[in-house]
Amino acid sequence: MERLRRNPELQAWLLLAAPVIFLLIFFMAPLLIVFIYSFLERGKYGGVEWVFTLENIRRVFDPLYFRTFLRSFNIAIITTLITLILGYPLAYFIANSPPHRRSALLFALMIPFWTNFLIRTYAWLTLLRTHTGLINVSLMNWGIIEKPLPLFGNDFAIILGLVYGWLPVMVLPIYAALERLDKSLLEAARDLYASNFHAFRRVTWPLSIPGVVAGSMLVFIPSLGAFVTPAILGGGKSLMIGNIISNQFLGAHDWPFGSALSMVMMIAMLIATVIYFRWTVKSEALA
């Protein structure tokens, strides 16, 4: 007991032992398995043969799959951009509201986010479906359009669903950055002959970049790995990498290839994150 009191490192490990062992077994080991499986041959009835191969990795870059990969990237980037364009002014609006209204608005923002993602996606399904969706039905009833608009089963629907799902996580870190922003800095800029626009461009925007980066990452990563949204709003036609991965486990029983796909996806995310960080740090320095 005395030794424990004197040795903080021992104390730390005593506290950490249970959670660390748990994560090592049930998180790190599975991660390692995916890595190993990526280099193994596929078994006849699911499972794997313990033979080393690079075939799975090569197949990821096969145009057949790689096209989906690029498309997923595209969708994730567009989603992130739109979420940023929609989310920034919203964060700005909340941050510039009177303090007593601010927390109410934040909760109003978070309630949809705390609502099940599946449900929120389903809500859009009922709105977007081509012949029976509320939007097309209403527009045709009102005689605004004659033929239903192509709102469903395409990239538009997926992006809309993703933007809707992840908008709150974009807003939150930007809000935090804007709220931290010292108001006297803006007054100083205005005092030094900057118009509202220039004060924003030269002071507010560069100082909110950390929030923009955090928000973008929080939207980009789950968008790239999206599974539910394309599964429901893609209408079985428009797929993303998440669906291809799941197919390898649910339908095709090609576990090594599924593992390789998710390995490449995670590495791609890592690279994108690093590039994005570098780029924003540089643009911040230039401001």
Binding site: P19, A29, G47, I245
Partner: peptide, 27 residues
């Protein structure tokens, strides 16, 4: 150890799902 605790938050759920699926199968 720090990074290990952040990973499950960052990794997309589809990747985490298949990781666990393989683990439970294999173990």
């Amino acid at each position: 150890i720090d990074s290990m605790f952040y990973l499950p938050v960052i990794i997309p759920d589809i990747a985490m799902a298949i990781m666990l699926l393989l683990f439970f199968n294999m173990s």
